[in-house]
């Protein structure tokens, strides 16, 4: 069973990963974006961690819902609403009250969260976005958290030869080919942090 502490660890591990990889995310965002993905997510997840310490939400659902709301309020750009919606809708799907949730409940909730991201941003697999890491990760979650992290990383890696069809990279057309997508890369960090939170 996964309790509120597990989800707090997930958010803390994500903040640490984004912090560690901020320069790399920003570097990936330079040739096909506008060179701010790392700093934006760094600001967002740092404020999520600070908020969680202050508000002390007591259930898995409220940890994620509040974290999502915090991202929407602090990140801006496209990644704020998209990551914010992912966590908020996943949290809402878990419900406010349950003190513990099963891995299967989390997988179903994440599926709902990813669907909400798709509905908001309109991206489908193959568009060279965060969806390319998230969809295979949720599929692999039935196996294990580590398998999900691997699937997300492979999904992010597989965006390199794709031509972007959503977001700012799409303006480059063919010139977006050959660059790994920064959004898929940060999504893989989020899933890797989930595996890290489970691995204690």
């Amino acid at each position: 069973m996964l309790d509120a502490d597990f989800f707090r660890r997930w958010m803390t591990a994500t903040a640490a990963a984004v912090d560690r990889e901020a320069d790399r995310l920003t570097a990936l965002d330079s040739p096909i974006g506008d060179a701010d993905h790392g700093s934006n997510l760094q600001r967002g997840f740092a404020s999520v961690v600070a908020m969680l310490e202050k508000e002390e939400p007591q259930t898995p659902g409220t940890v994620l819902a509040l974290a999502g709301r915090q991202l929407i309020s602090t990140v801006g750009g496209a990644s704020g609403p998209l990551y914010g919606t992912l966590l908020r809708r996943t949290g809402k799907a878990l419900g406010n009250d349950a003190a513990e949730v099963t891995e299967e409940q989390l997988r179903d909730a994440l599926r709902t969260g990813v669907a909400a991201v798709t509905a908001l941003g309109g991206a489908v697999p193959g568009d060279k976005t965060m969806i390319d890491a998230l969809v295979p990760a949720v599929d692999a979650l039935g196996e294990s958290f580590a398998a999900a992290a691997d699937a997300a990383e492979r999904g992010a890696e597989a965006t390199t030869p794709l031509r972007a069809r959503k977001g700012r990279a799409s303006y480059l057309g063919e010139r977006s080919v050959g660059h790994r997508d920064p959004g898929a890369t940060s999504a893989a960090l989020l899933v890797a942090a989930l595996a890290e939170a489970a691995d204690v």
Partner: peptide
């Protein structure tokens, strides 16, 4: 005004 080249937030 948002951050540099970053949309502001809904708030």
């Amino acid at each position: 005004p948002g951050e540099v080249f970053t949309s502001p937030v809904p708030d």
